[in-house]
Design a protein around this nucleic acid. Structure first.
Lengths: 134, 134
DNA sequence: GTGCCTACTTTCCAATGGAGAGTGACCGTC
DNA sequence: GACGGTCACTCTCCATTGGAAAGTAGGCAC
Protein backbone atom coordinates (compact mmCIF):
# COMPACT_ATOMS: atom_id res chain seq x y z
CA UNK A 1 0.00 0.00 0.00
CA UNK A 2 2.99 2.21 0.52
CA UNK A 3 5.43 2.62 -2.36
CA UNK A 4 2.90 2.83 -5.16
CA UNK A 5 4.62 1.94 -8.41
CA UNK A 6 4.72 4.64 -11.09
CA UNK A 7 1.49 5.28 -12.96
CA UNK A 8 0.54 2.64 -15.49
CA UNK A 9 -1.33 4.94 -17.82
CA UNK A 10 -0.64 8.07 -19.84
CA UNK A 11 2.44 6.81 -21.60
CA UNK A 12 1.50 5.45 -25.01
CA UNK A 13 4.25 4.02 -27.18
CA UNK A 14 6.48 3.64 -24.14
CA UNK A 15 6.55 -0.13 -24.21
CA UNK A 16 4.91 -2.62 -21.88
CA UNK A 17 4.97 -2.23 -18.13
CA UNK A 18 6.23 -5.55 -16.84
CA UNK A 19 6.82 -9.14 -17.83
CA UNK A 20 3.84 -10.90 -19.41
CA UNK A 21 3.60 -13.48 -16.63
CA UNK A 22 2.64 -10.81 -14.11
CA UNK A 23 0.48 -9.15 -16.75
CA UNK A 24 -1.53 -12.34 -17.19
CA UNK A 25 -1.90 -12.87 -13.45
CA UNK A 26 -3.06 -9.31 -12.95
CA UNK A 27 -5.60 -9.74 -15.71
CA UNK A 28 -6.84 -12.90 -14.06
CA UNK A 29 -7.22 -11.12 -10.74
CA UNK A 30 -8.95 -8.19 -12.40
CA UNK A 31 -11.31 -10.60 -14.09
CA UNK A 32 -12.33 -12.01 -10.71
CA UNK A 33 -12.48 -8.80 -8.77
CA UNK A 34 -13.90 -6.41 -11.36
CA UNK A 35 -17.31 -7.94 -11.23
CA UNK A 36 -20.48 -6.09 -10.45
CA UNK A 37 -21.50 -8.07 -7.39
CA UNK A 38 -18.02 -8.20 -5.88
CA UNK A 39 -17.76 -4.42 -6.07
CA UNK A 40 -21.20 -3.88 -4.64
CA UNK A 41 -20.66 -6.30 -1.75
CA UNK A 42 -17.26 -4.80 -1.05
CA UNK A 43 -18.93 -1.42 -0.80
CA UNK A 44 -21.65 -2.46 1.63
CA UNK A 45 -19.21 -4.33 3.85
CA UNK A 46 -16.87 -1.34 3.86
CA UNK A 47 -19.72 0.94 4.84
CA UNK A 48 -21.54 -1.26 7.32
CA UNK A 49 -18.83 -3.36 8.91
CA UNK A 50 -19.60 -6.92 9.99
CA UNK A 51 -22.93 -7.88 8.47
CA UNK A 52 -25.18 -10.93 8.27
CA UNK A 53 -25.89 -12.88 5.12
CA UNK A 54 -29.41 -11.72 4.39
CA UNK A 55 -28.62 -8.18 5.44
CA UNK A 56 -25.82 -8.03 2.89
CA UNK A 57 -28.31 -9.16 0.28
CA UNK A 58 -30.78 -6.45 1.26
CA UNK A 59 -28.13 -3.74 1.26
CA UNK A 60 -26.76 -4.75 -2.12
CA UNK A 61 -30.22 -4.98 -3.59
CA UNK A 62 -31.31 -7.06 -6.56
CA UNK A 63 -28.88 -9.91 -5.98
CA UNK A 64 -30.09 -13.51 -6.02
CA UNK A 65 -29.19 -15.76 -3.10
CA UNK A 66 -27.18 -17.93 -5.42
CA UNK A 67 -24.96 -15.07 -6.53
CA UNK A 68 -24.71 -13.77 -2.99
CA UNK A 69 -23.41 -17.08 -1.64
CA UNK A 70 -21.22 -17.61 -4.65
CA UNK A 71 -19.65 -14.16 -4.60
CA UNK A 72 -19.12 -14.19 -0.84
CA UNK A 73 -17.49 -17.61 -1.06
CA UNK A 74 -15.23 -16.40 -3.82
CA UNK A 75 -14.29 -13.32 -1.83
CA UNK A 76 -13.56 -15.49 1.18
CA UNK A 77 -11.33 -17.70 -0.92
CA UNK A 78 -9.46 -14.66 -2.22
CA UNK A 79 -8.95 -13.45 1.35
CA UNK A 80 -11.15 -10.38 0.99
CA UNK A 81 -13.73 -11.31 3.62
CA UNK A 82 -13.88 -13.40 6.77
CA UNK A 83 -16.88 -15.63 7.36
CA UNK A 84 -17.86 -16.15 10.99
CA UNK A 85 -20.39 -18.83 11.83
CA UNK A 86 -22.13 -18.49 15.18
CA UNK A 87 -23.35 -21.98 16.10
CA UNK A 88 -26.80 -20.93 17.21
CA UNK A 89 -30.32 -21.72 16.13
CA UNK A 90 -31.46 -20.19 13.85
CA UNK A 91 -28.08 -19.94 12.11
CA UNK A 92 -26.17 -16.70 12.19
CA UNK A 93 -23.32 -16.05 9.80
CA UNK A 94 -21.49 -12.76 9.62
CA UNK A 95 -19.14 -11.41 6.99
CA UNK A 96 -16.56 -8.69 7.37
CA UNK A 97 -13.70 -7.34 5.29
CA UNK A 98 -10.14 -8.38 5.93
CA UNK A 99 -7.35 -5.82 5.72
CA UNK A 100 -6.83 -6.93 2.15
CA UNK A 101 -10.52 -6.44 1.42
CA UNK A 102 -10.34 -3.00 2.92
CA UNK A 103 -7.45 -1.93 0.74
CA UNK A 104 -9.39 -3.11 -2.30
CA UNK A 105 -12.43 -1.17 -1.16
CA UNK A 106 -10.25 1.91 -0.90
CA UNK A 107 -8.93 1.31 -4.40
CA UNK A 108 -12.48 1.06 -5.71
CA UNK A 109 -13.44 4.18 -3.85
CA UNK A 110 -12.03 6.22 -6.71
CA UNK A 111 -14.31 4.49 -9.16
CA UNK A 112 -17.23 5.12 -6.89
CA UNK A 113 -16.67 8.82 -6.62
CA UNK A 114 -16.01 8.90 -10.35
CA UNK A 115 -19.43 7.34 -10.95
CA UNK A 116 -21.07 9.81 -8.61
CA UNK A 117 -19.48 12.86 -10.14
CA UNK A 118 -19.92 11.78 -13.75
CA UNK A 119 -23.41 10.36 -13.90
CA UNK A 120 -24.69 13.46 -15.64
CA UNK A 121 -21.99 13.31 -18.28
CA UNK A 122 -22.74 9.66 -18.95
CA UNK A 123 -26.44 10.25 -19.29
CA UNK A 124 -25.81 13.19 -21.60
CA UNK A 125 -23.48 11.07 -23.71
CA UNK A 126 -26.07 8.31 -23.94
CA UNK A 127 -28.82 10.69 -24.92
CA UNK A 128 -26.59 12.22 -27.61
CA UNK A 129 -25.58 8.79 -28.90
CA UNK A 130 -29.12 7.45 -29.01
CA UNK A 131 -30.37 10.65 -30.61
CA UNK A 132 -27.71 10.54 -33.30
CA UNK A 133 -28.14 6.92 -34.26
CA UNK A 134 -31.89 6.69 -34.39
CA UNK B 1 -12.64 15.75 -11.14
CA UNK B 2 -12.13 18.64 -8.84
CA UNK B 3 -14.04 18.75 -5.57
CA UNK B 4 -13.96 15.07 -4.71
CA UNK B 5 -16.72 14.34 -2.20
CA UNK B 6 -15.68 13.01 1.21
CA UNK B 7 -14.73 9.35 1.40
CA UNK B 8 -17.60 6.92 1.13
CA UNK B 9 -16.10 4.14 3.16
CA UNK B 10 -14.75 3.60 6.67
CA UNK B 11 -17.74 4.99 8.50
CA UNK B 12 -20.04 2.14 9.53
CA UNK B 13 -23.23 3.04 11.39
CA UNK B 14 -22.99 6.60 10.15
CA UNK B 15 -26.10 6.42 8.03
CA UNK B 16 -26.40 6.36 4.25
CA UNK B 17 -24.43 8.66 2.05
CA UNK B 18 -26.96 10.28 -0.23
CA UNK B 19 -30.52 9.95 -1.47
CA UNK B 20 -31.46 6.53 -2.83
CA UNK B 21 -32.14 7.86 -6.32
CA UNK B 22 -28.49 8.74 -6.82
CA UNK B 23 -27.52 5.53 -5.05
CA UNK B 24 -29.47 3.49 -7.61
CA UNK B 25 -28.04 5.40 -10.56
CA UNK B 26 -24.52 4.96 -9.27
CA UNK B 27 -25.13 1.25 -8.89
CA UNK B 28 -26.40 1.09 -12.43
CA UNK B 29 -23.32 2.87 -13.71
CA UNK B 30 -21.07 0.64 -11.65
CA UNK B 31 -22.84 -2.38 -13.08
CA UNK B 32 -22.03 -1.24 -16.61
CA UNK B 33 -18.53 -0.04 -16.02
CA UNK B 34 -17.24 -2.63 -13.56
CA UNK B 35 -17.06 -5.32 -16.13
CA UNK B 36 -13.96 -7.28 -16.99
CA UNK B 37 -13.76 -6.34 -20.65
CA UNK B 38 -14.54 -2.67 -20.11
CA UNK B 39 -11.72 -2.41 -17.60
CA UNK B 40 -9.27 -4.25 -19.81
CA UNK B 41 -10.12 -2.17 -22.89
CA UNK B 42 -9.91 1.02 -20.88
CA UNK B 43 -6.47 0.00 -19.78
CA UNK B 44 -5.12 -0.74 -23.25
CA UNK B 45 -6.57 2.47 -24.69
CA UNK B 46 -5.09 4.47 -21.82
CA UNK B 47 -1.71 2.90 -22.41
CA UNK B 48 -1.61 2.85 -26.18
CA UNK B 49 -3.64 5.89 -27.22
CA UNK B 50 -5.65 5.76 -30.43
CA UNK B 51 -5.80 2.14 -31.55
CA UNK B 52 -7.45 0.12 -34.30
CA UNK B 53 -10.16 -2.45 -33.73
CA UNK B 54 -8.18 -5.65 -34.17
CA UNK B 55 -5.18 -4.21 -32.37
CA UNK B 56 -7.33 -3.54 -29.30
CA UNK B 57 -8.43 -7.14 -29.46
CA UNK B 58 -4.85 -8.38 -29.60
CA UNK B 59 -3.74 -6.16 -26.74
CA UNK B 60 -6.63 -7.17 -24.53
CA UNK B 61 -6.11 -10.83 -25.31
CA UNK B 62 -8.69 -13.58 -25.13
CA UNK B 63 -11.66 -11.44 -26.05
CA UNK B 64 -14.07 -12.57 -28.74
CA UNK B 65 -14.88 -10.23 -31.59
CA UNK B 66 -18.47 -10.15 -30.47
CA UNK B 67 -17.58 -8.91 -27.01
CA UNK B 68 -15.03 -6.50 -28.42
CA UNK B 69 -17.58 -4.82 -30.70
CA UNK B 70 -20.23 -4.94 -28.02
CA UNK B 71 -18.06 -3.46 -25.28
CA UNK B 72 -16.58 -0.77 -27.50
CA UNK B 73 -20.05 0.24 -28.66
CA UNK B 74 -21.23 0.40 -25.09
CA UNK B 75 -18.24 2.52 -24.12
CA UNK B 76 -18.89 4.80 -27.05
CA UNK B 77 -22.48 5.21 -25.98
CA UNK B 78 -21.39 6.06 -22.45
CA UNK B 79 -19.01 8.68 -23.82
CA UNK B 80 -15.84 6.85 -22.76
CA UNK B 81 -14.36 6.35 -26.22
CA UNK B 82 -14.56 8.02 -29.61
CA UNK B 83 -14.88 5.90 -32.71
CA UNK B 84 -13.25 7.31 -35.84
CA UNK B 85 -14.00 5.69 -39.17
CA UNK B 86 -11.50 6.38 -41.94
CA UNK B 87 -13.35 5.80 -45.22
CA UNK B 88 -10.63 3.78 -46.88
CA UNK B 89 -10.31 0.29 -48.25
CA UNK B 90 -9.75 -1.95 -46.39
CA UNK B 91 -11.72 -0.28 -43.58
CA UNK B 92 -9.85 1.43 -40.78
CA UNK B 93 -11.56 2.27 -37.51
CA UNK B 94 -9.73 3.77 -34.58
CA UNK B 95 -10.78 4.09 -30.97
CA UNK B 96 -9.45 6.50 -28.38
CA UNK B 97 -10.45 7.57 -24.90
CA UNK B 98 -12.39 10.75 -24.31
CA UNK B 99 -11.53 12.96 -21.35
CA UNK B 100 -14.26 11.16 -19.46
CA UNK B 101 -12.76 7.81 -20.38
CA UNK B 102 -9.39 9.01 -19.20
CA UNK B 103 -10.66 10.05 -15.80
CA UNK B 104 -12.24 6.62 -15.42
CA UNK B 105 -8.98 4.97 -16.41
CA UNK B 106 -7.27 7.00 -13.72
CA UNK B 107 -9.85 5.92 -11.17
CA UNK B 108 -9.28 2.27 -12.09
CA UNK B 109 -5.56 2.79 -11.89
CA UNK B 110 -5.78 2.28 -8.13
CA UNK B 111 -7.40 -1.11 -8.62
CA UNK B 112 -4.71 -2.03 -11.08
CA UNK B 113 -1.86 -1.26 -8.77
CA UNK B 114 -3.77 -2.95 -5.98
CA UNK B 115 -3.94 -6.12 -8.07
CA UNK B 116 -0.26 -5.92 -8.89
CA UNK B 117 0.86 -5.41 -5.33
CA UNK B 118 -1.49 -7.99 -3.81
CA UNK B 119 -1.31 -10.94 -6.17
CA UNK B 120 0.85 -12.86 -3.75
CA UNK B 121 -1.54 -12.30 -0.87
CA UNK B 122 -4.47 -13.48 -2.98
CA UNK B 123 -2.67 -16.60 -4.09
CA UNK B 124 -1.64 -17.35 -0.52
CA UNK B 125 -5.23 -16.86 0.66
CA UNK B 126 -6.51 -19.18 -2.05
CA UNK B 127 -3.98 -21.86 -1.23
CA UNK B 128 -4.88 -21.63 2.46
CA UNK B 129 -8.60 -21.76 1.70
CA UNK B 130 -8.32 -24.71 -0.65
CA UNK B 131 -6.03 -26.54 1.75
CA UNK B 132 -8.42 -26.05 4.65
CA UNK B 133 -11.55 -27.14 2.82
CA UNK B 134 -10.26 -30.20 1.04
C1' DG C 1 -47.48 -32.38 15.57
C1' DT C 2 -47.26 -27.58 12.41
C1' DG C 3 -44.92 -23.70 11.56
C1' DC C 4 -41.02 -20.45 11.66
C1' DC C 5 -36.21 -18.88 11.56
C1' DT C 6 -31.79 -18.46 8.79
C1' DA C 7 -28.34 -19.68 5.58
C1' DC C 8 -27.82 -21.95 2.33
C1' DT C 9 -28.53 -25.70 -1.91
C1' DT C 10 -30.95 -27.36 -5.79
C1' DT C 11 -33.65 -27.11 -9.87
C1' DC C 12 -35.24 -25.12 -13.88
C1' DC C 13 -35.18 -21.74 -17.39
C1' DA C 14 -33.69 -17.48 -19.77
C1' DA C 15 -29.87 -14.58 -20.90
C1' DT C 16 -24.93 -14.10 -21.72
C1' DG C 17 -20.49 -15.16 -23.81
C1' DG C 18 -17.28 -17.76 -26.89
C1' DA C 19 -15.91 -20.07 -31.42
C1' DG C 20 -16.11 -19.80 -35.84
C1' DA C 21 -18.06 -18.88 -40.30
C1' DG C 22 -20.04 -15.36 -43.28
C1' DT C 23 -20.31 -10.46 -45.32
C1' DG C 24 -19.22 -6.24 -47.94
C1' DA C 25 -16.30 -3.39 -50.42
C1' DC C 26 -12.43 -2.78 -52.88
C1' DC C 27 -7.59 -3.78 -54.45
C1' DG C 28 -3.76 -6.47 -56.46
C1' DT C 29 -2.46 -10.69 -58.87
C1' DC C 30 -2.79 -13.71 -62.39
C1' DG D 1 -12.35 -11.46 -65.02
C1' DA D 2 -12.11 -15.02 -61.33
C1' DC D 3 -9.43 -15.31 -57.05
C1' DG D 4 -7.49 -14.25 -52.85
C1' DG D 5 -6.48 -10.80 -49.26
C1' DT D 6 -7.63 -7.11 -45.90
C1' DC D 7 -10.52 -5.33 -42.04
C1' DA D 8 -14.37 -4.52 -39.24
C1' DC D 9 -17.80 -6.30 -38.24
C1' DT D 10 -22.31 -9.60 -38.08
C1' DC D 11 -24.54 -14.05 -37.61
C1' DT D 12 -25.19 -18.67 -35.98
C1' DC D 13 -24.68 -22.28 -32.84
C1' DC D 14 -23.68 -24.04 -28.37
C1' DA D 15 -21.77 -24.06 -23.48
C1' DT D 16 -21.72 -21.49 -19.40
C1' DT D 17 -23.77 -18.15 -16.33
C1' DG D 18 -27.32 -15.89 -13.69
C1' DG D 19 -32.11 -15.32 -11.85
C1' DA D 20 -36.51 -17.14 -9.56
C1' DA D 21 -38.25 -20.14 -6.76
C1' DA D 22 -38.60 -24.25 -4.15
C1' DG D 23 -36.23 -27.40 -1.00
C1' DT D 24 -33.11 -28.58 3.21
C1' DA D 25 -31.39 -28.69 8.07
C1' DG D 26 -32.15 -28.24 12.78
C1' DG D 27 -33.93 -26.70 16.70
C1' DC D 28 -37.58 -23.64 19.06
C1' DA D 29 -42.37 -21.71 19.96
C1' DC D 30 -46.91 -23.13 19.88
Amino acid sequence: MTAVPPARISHPETGEVADPRVEALVNEVIGRVADKWTMLILEVLAEHGETRFTRVGELVGGISQKMLTQTLRQMERDGLVVRTVHPVIPPKVEYRLTDLGFTLAEAFCGVWTWAETNIDRIEAARAAFDGRKR
